[in-house]
Design a protein around this nucleic acid. Structure first.
Lengths: 257, 257
DNA sequence: CAAAATCGTTGATGACGATCAATTCGCAAG
DNA sequence: CTTGCGAATTGATCGTCATCAACGATTTTG
C-alpha cells in the first residue's frame, strides 16, 4: 500500500499522455483488438475505428503496479486489454475500501472526470495491459463520431448502475448472500469473455473481497468453507470451482430480512 | 408503493417527450433560471443557453407522483428546478431500497442511458418541478457545444463518485456514523442552495432514511434521539436543527473499526 | 533450502443492530 | 370532537457478524 517510485515510469523521450513510448507502452490498433465488441469501440465502422486507433496508446503494468492514484491529475481513461485490476479508496482513518474489480474490456478512470482528479487508486492485481485514451482527445472525437459518443455515455451509465447494484448488496444482503452474489457476478463476467464460468482463479485476497463486500476477511473465509461443505463450490485457496450455480442463486432469493 | 394511475398524466394534444404541454408542463428558459449555475447550463454563453432553452420543457409533479419507473423506456434526463425526490429500486424479494435523495439543481435519470430503460423509480417527496431534457436532442446538442458536453460528462462522473461515497459509507461505517454523515451531507447541500444549513425539514420518513443507509427505521430513530440527548441536534419529527456540526463531524473520524 | 512474510482457516466470545412489541404522536377524514 | 391510520419513539431480546486469537498453508526472499 505504500507508494513505490518504481510504479511510475520514468519520463523520457517521446511521450504520450506523459507515458513514454517504449517497449511497454506502444501504439495499438482498436481495429484489430479482439475486445472491440466489449470496449468503447462497439458499433464503430472501420473508418471511425481508425480515428480511435490514432489516439490510443498501450501500457503494460506488472502485478502490484498502480495505474493511477487518488489525487492524480485526470488525463485519460483506460480500457483494460488483459489482466485484472482493483480500485480502492483510502478512508479518512486510513482504511482501504475496495470499490471495484475490473477485467478485460472494462473501463477505468471515469471517476476522475468530475473534478479533474482521480478519487480512487487503480492497481493491477496481475500483469496487465491497458489502452490509454487521452480524455480531451476522446471528448473531441466523440463530438464528431455519434456512435462513439453514445457508447461512451453508455459506459458511464453502466458504471452508475453497477455502483447502485453494489449499494443494494451492501444495504440489504447478509454475508452469505453477498459472497454468493460476488461469485456469481465474477462467473458471469468470465463467461462473457469466453473463459470458463465454472472455474477460475481469484486474483484478490480474502481481505480485498471482504473490503469490497463490507465484510471482514474471516467472514469471507467462513462463507467459502461453508459453501464448500455444502457442495456448492470447490475452494483451494484462490482456485474456485462453481459446482452448483443454481444453489448459489437460491441463496439470493429468499432473504430473511 | 402501489402504482396509482393518477401518477401519470393523461395523453392529450400537443406533446413533448410524451408529456402534454399543458398548465403543468410548459416551456421554460434556462437563460433565466436561477439554478443555471448548479445545473447542466454551467458555463454556457448566452447563445448556447438559448439552444438549450429550445429543448427543455418543464413538468410539475405533486407529492407522491413518480417521474419515471424502473422498466420505463428511457427518453430524457431531468433537472430538478424545485422540490425533492427519492430514487429507489425494488429488490427481487420486493423490498424497497432507496438509492438516493435529490434536490434542486441535481440531475435524475442518467441510470437509464445504459440500457435504454430506467433501472430505478424516481418519486417526488414534495410538490416539485423538473426540466425535461429529451436525451437524443441533448446528445446532439452536446456534440456541437463543447462546454455542454463537458458539463454533462462531469454530471455523470459526479454521480459515479457520489455512489462510491455511499458504498464506502455502507461498507465501513457504523449506524451512528452513517446518520451523522447523512445529516451533514443534507446540511451541506442545503447551504449550497442558499437555504439554512442548520435547520430544515426532512422530506423523507425514517424508514426511507434507513433504507438509504442500510439500517432499520428503529435504528435511525434511536440515533436521532441519542444525538438529541447529546445536544448535537434538535429533533421534532421531520424538523431538524443542527446544533453542533463539529460534534457530528467528530463522530465520523475516529471510527472504532 | 531455510526463514520470513503473507495469506487463509478455524474457534470462542461479545457487540451492534435487527427484530418483536407496546405506546405515543400527528394529522386527515368523518 | 372523535376515529382511524401512518409515522415515530422506546424497550426487551436475539442473531449475525466483528473481534481476538491461534494455527496452518503458501509464496517470497536472501
Amino acid at each position: 500500500m505504500t507508494i513505490n517510485s518504481q510504479d511510475r515510469l520514468p519520463s523520457v523521450d517521446q511521450k504520450v499522455n506523459n507515458i513514454p513510448l517504449t517497449a511497454n507502452s506502444m501504439r495499438v490498433a482498436c481495429s484489430q483488438c479482439n475486445l472491440r465488441e466489449l470496449c468503447l469501440a462497439v458499433g464503430l465502422d472501420d473508418n471511425d475505428l481508425h480515428k480511435l486507433d490514432d489516439l490510443v496508446v498501450k501500457r503494460k503494468l506488472k502485478r502490484g503496479q498502480q495505474l493511477y492514484r487518488a489525487g492524480d491529475a485526470f488525463e485519460a481513461i483506460y480500457a483494460i486489454r488483459t489482466g485484472f485490476f482493483k480500485t480502492d479508496i483510502l478512508t479518512e482513518e486510513g482504511l482501504e475500501q475496495v470499490t471495484g474489480f475490473q477485467m478485460a474490456g472494462e473501463i477505468l478512470g471515469m471517476d476522475g472526470i468530475s473534478n479533474d482528479r482521480h478519487v480512487c487508486n487503480a492497481t493491477a492485481l496481475e500483469d496487465s495491459e491497458v489502452c490509454i485514451m487521452p480524455y480531451d482527445e476522446l471528448e473531441e472525437l466523440s463530438r464528431s463520431i455519434k456512435s462513439l459518443q453514445q457508447q461512451f455515455h453508455k459506459f458511464m451509465s453502466r458504471e452508475i448502475v453497477r455502483d447502485q447494484s453494489l449499494m443494494i448488496l451492501l444495504g440489504s444482503m447478509r454475508a452469505e448472500e453477498r459472497i454468493a452474489a460476488f461469485l456469481l457476478n465474477l462467473s458471469q463476467r468470465m463467461r462473457l469473455r469466453g473463459y470458463s464460468a465454472s472455474e477460475f482463479h481469484l486474483r484478490m485476497t480474502r481481505e480485498e473481497i471482504g473490503s469490497y463486500l463490507g465484510l471482514k476477511l474471516e467472514t469471507v473465509s467462513r462463507a467459502f468453507s461453508k459453501f464448500h461443505d455444502e457442495g456448492l463450490i470447490g475452494v483451494q485457496q484462490k482456485y474456485i470451482r462453481i459446482l452448483n450455480a443454481d444453489g448459489l442463486k437460491a441463496l439470493l432469493n429468499h432473504a430473511p430480512n
